[in-house]
């Protein structure tokens, strides 16, 4: 199976672990992610509040560049996913907007018809296109005894409504029960991580991060699983600052869900980008996942 792939900027540096683990998992499950040629930045969250038309045109360029032989586009980053999906929806629902954007695209001899490409998040692809049976089949190292807290954040589940609950999503929860993990049903899994708030007001941002960490701790999670580079960055990189600010002592590894999928599939942690996270996952993995492997 082959999908068009929009990695987004983060995947090359701060989310390199997400990128390598995504590719590794894709190899195991047998699908190919064909990167869009010459893609550009999605504009993240800010650009849309500045000038919607320009922001859409910037995003639509990526949609227009999707190989005409495929109509499935995968984005692993929540913000990229939302911007791509939102632009596609705007162009489908509002023909006038679509016309204006295409005027802009015409300058680069490009054209995009709203609805041509189905924009999907990586979790949705793995959950739906492979599903329980195929994923269980590939598990060689069940995550027995590992307590994971799936963290969805906002932008994948809202405002574009997929088939998962927008308020209390379950698909990552389900997926990790297939892998044998103990899934922590903690109440803040779809609350906001603060996004770029750290750049605007640290106290506000830290409080949002603290709530997530605290709830995971209260529910005795071993690690939080992320599906977005921004969420991972906030929870991981700011954890020590949060500890300093609130006088707490969180030590919660923040890991991409694809990394743990890779572990369950029996891949080498090094291959999956482990070690790049700031709060090390190694002690937890060692303690919980001793050398038990099944074939």
């Amino acid at each position: 199976m082959k999908y068009a792939y929009y990695p987004g900027c983060s995947m090359e540096c701060n989310a390199a672990a997400y990128e390598v683990s995504t590719q590794a998992v894709a190899r195991v499950l047998g699908f190919e992610l064909a990167e869009i040629d010459d893609w550009n930045c999605c504009g993240a969250t800010e650009y849309f509040s500045q000038d919607e038309l320009t922001a859409c045109a910037v995003v639509a360029r990526n949609l227009a560049l999707v190989d005409s032989r495929t109509d499935q586009l995968v984005a692993p980053c929540a913000a990229c996913y939302l911007n791509l999906a939102k632009t596609d929806k705007l162009m489908t629902d509002d023909p006038e907007m679509g016309r204006k954007i295409n005027q802009a695209l015409a300058a680069g001899s490009l054209h995009y018809e709203g609805g041509r490409v189905k924009v999907r998040h990586l979790l949705d692809v793995i959950y739906h296109d492979f599903g329980e049976e195929k994923i269980r089949e590939k598990v060689v190292r069940p995550l027995d005894g590992l307590r994971v807290a799936p963290y969805y954040g906002c932008q994948v589940v809202r405002p574009i409504k997929g088939d998962d609950s927008t308020e209390y999503p379950m698909q990552m929860d389900e997926m990790f029960t297939w892998l044998g993990a103990e899934v922590v049903d903690y109440p803040v899994k779809a609350h906001c991580c603060g996004g770029h708030m750290t750049q605007i007001s640290e106290p506000q941002a830290f409080e949002l991060i603290r709530r997530l960490l605290q709830s995971a701790v209260d529910y005795e999670a071993d690690m939080i699983l992320c599906m977005c580079p921004m969420c991972q960055l906030n929870l991981d990189a700011y954890q020590s600052r949060v500890n300093g600010f609130f006088n707490t002592n969180f030590s919660m590894p923040i890991i991409y869900f694809t990394q743990m999928l890779g572990i369950a599939f029996g891949l080498d942690p090094k291959e999956l980008g482990f070690g790049k996270e700031l709060v090390a996952a190694e002690p937890v993995l060692k303690a919980k996942l001793t050398a038990k492997t099944t074939t």
Partner: peptide, 8 residues
């Protein structure tokens, strides 16, 4: 919006 046990 929600009923939660996540105390702040």
């Amino acid at each position: 919006a929600e009923v939660t046990d996540a105390a702040r």
